[in-house]
């Protein structure tokens, strides 16, 4: 049995080493963010100083509260619309088994492959052509559109595999119309996928800087990742590192806090669509 214990200890040491290496850049950045400028010479002495001065500077420089509000607004609106639109779209595609459904399914799925940066020129032109003003809200259109392929893919798979049509048939006999059947019976049963969609799409929308950079020009309208772009150039200047890293962690903090509380949903949400039933 001694061999077993030794083996386990070795495994623990092995895993810890690999993962420590994995999060080392984050640890060093975190420790540097608590330092003052005069103490930046040896960033590898971890957590030798705790000063919140750089956080105060970064907080002001990126207008943290304002940026946080903007990020929340963009993410919440986009995610809510994505959940509504894609769960609805997946419903007939999963239920009705004909050529049209198959074609729609594949048509949406194709969108997964095309990267947004590639089509950005005609997207900007299309939005201008529709006389939609470039504002704080414009990126929402693209966040929703880009989330449609993956989300409808998840919803379709789940309705097909896990929501038997019988649950609706009894409601039909009770006289429930299409709308009531979907919103009161099917939609609540979709909760596991809805969690998965909210988390997978919410994280990328929250972290995206690209569409924000294209459409938002006023500092007051910037969400967090776009506010981070204001620090561009500081990464090669060691004297600016403490403030830069403080800004990095301020930017990541909301998601890290969410993750700390909802870890099980983050991990589970990732795998809902990925394990065939």
């Amino acid at each position: 049995m001694n061999g077993g214990i030794a083996k386990k200890t070795l495994t623990h040491i092995g895993i810890s080493f690999v993962l420590l290496l994995n999060i080392l850049p984050l640890l060093i950045a975190l420790s540097s963010s608590f330092r003052s400028v005069s103490n930046m010479t040896n960033p590898l002495q971890l957590f030798s100083e705790f000063s919140l001065e750089s956080y105060r500077v970064a907080f002001d420089k990126m207008h943290f509260m304002q940026a946080l509000g903007n990020s929340l607004m963009l993410t919440v609106i986009s995610v809510v619309v994505v959940v509504l639109f894609t769960s609805m779209a997946a419903y007939p595609i999963a239920r009705i088994n004909n050529r049209l459904s198959k074609a729609l399914y594949l048509f949406f799925l194709c969108g997964l492959v095309v990267p947004s940066q590639m089509v950005i020129i005609p997207i900007v032109q299309t939005i201008q052509g529709l006389h939609i003003p470039s504002s704080q809200y414009t990126p929402i259109l693209m966040f929703i559109t880009c989330s449609i392929p993956f989300s409808s893919f998840l919803y379709t798979g789940f309705i097909k595999s896990s929501i038997p049509i019988e649950v609706e048939e009894s409601a039909l006999i009770d006289g429930a119309g299409l709308m009531r059947r979907f919103w009161q019976i099917v939609f609540p049963l979709l909760l596991p996928v809805t969690v998965s969609v909210v988390i997978t799409q919410g994280v990328w929308i929250w972290n995206d800087y690209f569409f924000n950079m294209i459409f938002i020009s006023r500092a007051a309208e910037s969400p967090l990742p776009l506010a981070m772009l204001g620090f561009m150039g500081d990464q090669t200047n060691p004297t600016a590192w403490n403030v830069l890293f403080a800004a990095c962690f301020l930017c990541a903090l909301p998601l890290l806090v969410m993750f700390a509380f909802l870890q099980k949903y983050f991990i589970g949400g990732l795998t809902v669509g990925s394990v065939k039933g």
């Binding site: 999060i23 994280v203 620090f231 990541a252 983050f266």
Partner: peptide, 17 residues
């Protein structure tokens, strides 16, 4: 899992260091 939560822009800055 934690690194996946960071925005690409934050990751870029930290790795530049």
């Amino acid at each position: 899992y934690v690194p996946t939560l960071f925005s690409a822009i934050v990751v870029g800055f930290i790795w530049s260091y």
